[in-house]
Design a protein around this nucleic acid. Sequence first.
DNA 1: ATCAAGCATACTACGGAGTATGTTGTCAAC
DNA 2: GTTGACAACATACTCCGTAGTATGCTTGAT
Lengths: 202, 202
Amino acid sequence: MLDRKTSSKTEILDAAANCFMELGSDVASIDDIARTLGATKGRIYHHFSSKGALLSAVRMRAIMFILDEVTPIVNNSEAPINTLHDMAYTHVLKILETLPYHRVVLQHYRKNAAKSTTDYERKLISEIEAKRQLYENLYRDILEQGMKTGDFIKRDISVALHSVLLMLNSPVFWFTPLKKNERKNREEIAKQLADMAVACLR
Amino acid sequence: MLDRKTSSKTEILDAAANCFMELGSDVASIDDIARTLGATKGRIYHHFSSKGALLSAVRMRAIMFILDEVTPIVNNSEAPINTLHDMAYTHVLKILETLPYHRVVLQHYRKNAAKSTTDYERKLISEIEAKRQLYENLYRDILEQGMKTGDFIKRDISVALHSVLLMLNSPVFWFTPLKKNERKNREEIAKQLADMAVACLR
DNA sequence: ATCAAGCATACTACGGAGTATGTTGTCAAC
DNA sequence: GTTGACAACATACTCCGTAGTATGCTTGAT
């Protein structure tokens, strides 16, 4: 079945995300990931052409989690403040749900290229970069709009943009999921961060 | 001379910081760093017992840059808002001056331990962690004080603390130094970030 | 019965950390 | 001003982990 195939793939992706998260994507080996699955290299290389391709798949999945969730919000034609608050809240909540993936992403926020990458892997990376740009622009548009209407203080758009986005990603660095009150706790964190994100723009 | 020795050491540290920054501390090899210096492994292993020790030295130097600069500010007995603004401004400015070091630090914000570390390296890491805690508490104290006096809105202290600190570190992710108007540009960025840091707490 | 998908097993090749040893300059003592 | 000794490196190795490959095996669909 095609269903069985994608299921096996996402299982690999989940395991890879966890290993990359814990050891770092450079240190974690394919064997480590396979061991987590109770499998061997063969399974992984059957689905992914290289370690770089697997890593890119993890990063792409991470950004698509967020992009799919936040994109529908931007066109609700409310005030910029409310729209931004909505976007921020949704962003944080989704990140907390898919934490390992975003830990991996942040490891590569600045790392440009590994030592030797193939053309194919470079293509994957540029596709990820494109999606990231797309997502960034959602916020850039809201910020510009809000500064025009006077809802937001006029600041350097680039400084404000990156600062807010990184603040929304900050739980990635410190959040540790607990069983107790999990859902409620996440919502509270998302609310607070969304509040702060809006507050620092006024 | 002892002077000549420390000079050679800091030269190695600068080169290591740059290599670790560009390639990531796992990918960058000792040979890479040596090549940057126009030297060989021998020079590096003469001053540092292992790659982990070198990395720890870079991270320690990074945090000491900031700690030495910001610590004197906290006891100026001004209003919490002004004190925090001062701390934030100084923090950002110093970070922009010693950027490569802090890029390395942020690569390890979450990465706990490599695959195999010696006792000695674990000791170095715990010393770094202690300094980091020390620095974090400078902000924690100001935040608690400000929330008590009503200067700051009451929020979860941990969420607010980490969010603000990460926002102050955000330039590490996107800032690219230019020759043109360098000093002025940095001061402007530091001012804006300090403003935003204070704003998001009110 | 066949054949390919979906793996496992057993190998190769290579880069990088660490080491053992050689080399050069410098200073100190006599 | 010669010798000894040590610091500050360079050179030439070893050894091991890991990415990638080549090939073998099993199961389910047709």
